[in-house]
Lab assay of single mutants.
Amino acid sequence: SISSRVKSKRIQLGLNQAELAQKVGTTQQSIEQLENGKTKRPRFLPELASALGVSVDWLLN
């Protein structure tokens, strides 16, 4: 799922939720909701993929 991929990649990069949120241009709460499965397809998906160094396709599939 996107939530597990985001969380595992974030941890692999040594980032906390607030640091990832800053790179993406969103809030820590938005990252938390995404990782908890409350958000399925965030509006900041391209920025998120870029910050994590992955493709949008990788996040979604």
Rank of each mutant, 00 (worst) to 15 (best):
Q28E: 12
S4Y: 12
F44R: 05
T39P: 08
V56W: 06
T27H: 07
S50K: 15
L13G: 03
S4D: 15
I31F: 02
T26P: 01
K7P: 02
I2K: 03
R41T: 12
G14F: 04
L34F: 07
S4N: 13
S30W: 15
K23S: 08
Q17C: 10
Q29F: 12
L52F: 05
T39G: 10
R41M: 14
R5P: 03
N36Y: 07
Q29K: 13
G37W: 04
A51T: 06
K23P: 00
E35V: 02
L20M: 03
Q17D: 03
I31D: 02
V54P: 00
D57N: 11
I31T: 01
E35I: 02
Q17P: 09
I31L: 08
G25M: 05
P46Q: 13
V6H: 02
D57Y: 12
V54Y: 02
N16E: 09
E19N: 06
S3M: 08
L52Y: 01
I31Q: 00
P46N: 13
N36H: 08
S55K: 07
Q28A: 13
A18M: 11
G25A: 04
L13T: 03
S1P: 10
S55E: 08
R41V: 14
Q28W: 12
I11W: 06
G25C: 08
W58K: 02
E47N: 09
S55C: 06
E35M: 03
K9L: 14
R5E: 02
W58G: 02
T39H: 10
S50E: 14
L60V: 12
S50C: 09
V54F: 03
P42G: 04
L34D: 01
W58R: 02
L34K: 03
P46S: 13
R10C: 03
S30K: 14
T27S: 12
V54C: 06
S55D: 11
S50D: 12
A21S: 04
Q33F: 13
I31A: 01
L34A: 03
F44P: 02
T27I: 05
T39W: 12
R10E: 00
S3Q: 09
R10V: 02
V54D: 10
L45M: 08
T39M: 15
S55P: 09
T27Y: 04
N16K: 09
V56Q: 09
Q29P: 07
V24C: 13
Q28Y: 09
F44L: 06
S55Y: 04
L48S: 00
S55M: 05
L34R: 08
K23M: 15
L15D: 02
F44K: 06
P46V: 14
V24W: 03
K40T: 14
K7G: 02
E47K: 11
S3I: 05
N61S: 14
K40V: 13
G53L: 07
T39Y: 12
W58F: 07
A21Q: 01
Q22S: 11
L48T: 01
L13Y: 06
P46A: 14
Q22K: 13
V54M: 06
W58A: 03
S8H: 13
T39N: 14
A18E: 12
G25P: 08
D57A: 11
W58T: 03
R43W: 15
N61T: 11
L15Q: 03
Q28P: 11
I31M: 04
V6T: 08
I31H: 02
D57C: 09
W58M: 03
L13N: 05
S50H: 13
E32K: 12
I11T: 10
D57K: 11
Q33C: 11
S4R: 10
I2M: 13
N61F: 11
G37R: 05
R41E: 11
K38H: 14
A49E: 00
G37H: 06
Q17S: 07
R10A: 01
V56A: 07
L48I: 08
T27G: 05
L20H: 00
E19M: 08
N36C: 09
K9H: 05
F44S: 03
Q28D: 05
V6E: 02
T39Q: 11
A49Y: 00
P46M: 12
V54A: 03
S1Q: 10
N16T: 15
K23Y: 08
S4T: 12
L20W: 02
R41H: 13
L45D: 01
V24T: 09
S8F: 15
L34I: 12
T39K: 09
A18Q: 12
I11N: 08
K23V: 10
T27W: 04
N16Q: 08
L60N: 08
K23L: 15
A21G: 05
N16R: 06
V24F: 02
A51S: 06
I2G: 03
L52S: 02
K23G: 04
S1I: 13
V24D: 00
Q12A: 13
L45R: 02
S30C: 14
V56L: 14
Q28N: 06
G14R: 08
Q17G: 05
L48D: 00
R10G: 00
E35D: 01
Q12M: 10
E32F: 08
E19W: 04
A49N: 00
L15V: 05
R43T: 15
N61D: 12
Q17A: 10
R5I: 08
G53W: 04
A18R: 12
L13I: 08
S50W: 13
F44T: 02
S55L: 06
T26G: 04
